[in-house]
């Protein structure tokens, strides 16, 4: 096997480094503590949402409701969590549990996740509109402080990205339960034969996705200071792209938490880079897609070579 095929993390890292170098070259002002934070702070909630999506992709499903769910969490955070913290926490916990229940139902009834999550996205969206019919609310003070904290040496966005990657790496790659969860994506039957309750495992994976979705929504409100029922709809597709860009696969439980975080950073940076290039907005979505295809093609080419060697 070639070096690249064995270390699937290399390609995402190289993509991010190249894009970062190009951005610094075009906009030297970005090459500072302040600049890096501005470039990447909105990538923190996207990274968390990407991790949520990764938990689902890890068990061979796909979640089309991440964006709506994060929007709902943002609305709860900006209203209940701010006005009545205890009630807010209860609601958020209930949301995580309902995510876990959704995973259990999907497995127990052998429903296609793509359909269930698409349906649930309208439920989340409706609840968000119900809680916050017009944009508003306010971020709890502690959350705002947390998201605007200025740690020494590295800006908050970079510290947060490293922290998220490290924690999820330990959880998904290093820990025993993480290995079993990836096993569900690899071959759920053999996991079941080994004596594991796959329904419970799927519920756990979905519950973890719910947890990271909640964290994403809270981080987002901490940055924007208030919410909007449509605030994070874009996260659904961004998170899927992030997982794949970071070296994950749709099947087989092959995911990389570090890669997913890097994928989220790359996607955010790609958008800024195109804006610095003064590319017309009509072309920007296309160009973002082109960057995505370029990276995936590179991956395929290396994987093929690795397979042949």
């Amino acid at each position: 096997m070639s070096f690249l095929a064995r270390h699937r993390i290399v390609l995402p890292v190289v993509s991010l480094a190249v894009l970062l170098a190009l951005t610094f070259w075009m906009q030297p002002r970005a090459m500072s503590y302040f600049g890096l934070n501005l470039l990447f702070n909105l990538a923190v909630p996207i990274a968390l949402a990407t991790i949520a999506q990764m938990m689902i992709i890890m068990v061979n499903d796909i979640d089309l409701s991440v964006g709506a769910f994060v929007s709902l969490v943002a609305c709860v955070t900006a209203t209940f969590l701010n006005d009545a913290p205890l009630l807010g926490l209860l609601i958020l916990a209930a949301l995580i549990l309902s995510y876990a229940a959704m995973g259990a139902v999907i497995h127990a009834l052998a429903l296609p996740a793509i359909v269930v999550t698409l349906g649930m996205s309208f439920v989340w969206g409706g609840l968000a509109l119900f809680i916050l019919p017009t944009p508003g609310g306010a971020a709890p003070g502690w959350l705002r402080t947390l998201m605007t904290v200025k740690p020494p040496v590295m800006p908050m966005a970079v510290v947060a990205a490293i922290l998220i990657a490290a924690v999820t790496h330990l959880l998904v790659i290093r820990s025993g339960i993480g290995t079993v969860l990836r096993g569900v994506g690899g071959n759920s039957r053999s996991v079941a034969r080994a004596g594991w309750n796959v329904t419970a495992l799927k519920a756990l994976a979905y519950g973890l996705a719910g947890l990271f979705g909640v964290l994403a929504g809270m981080a987002l409100v901490g940055l924007t200071t208030s919410a909007d029922a449509n605030i994070a709809l874009r996260y659904t597709l961004l998170s899927i792209a992030g997982v794949i860009l970071g070296g994950g696969e749709f099947t087989g439980g092959k995911v990389s938490p570090t890669g997913a975080v890097i994928g989220a950073l790359t996607l955010t940076l790609a958008a800024s880079f195109l804006s610095f290039m003064r590319l017309s907005p009509d072309w920007q979505i296309g160009a973002q897609g082109a960057i995505l295809i370029l990276v995936l093609t590179a991956r395929l080419v290396f994987a093929r070579r690795g397979g042949a060697a």
Partner: peptide
């Protein structure tokens, strides 16, 4: 490129 608050914040 898309009518979203998060895009515009960036």
């Amino acid at each position: 490129s898309e009518n979203q608050a998060t895009e515009q914040a960036a």
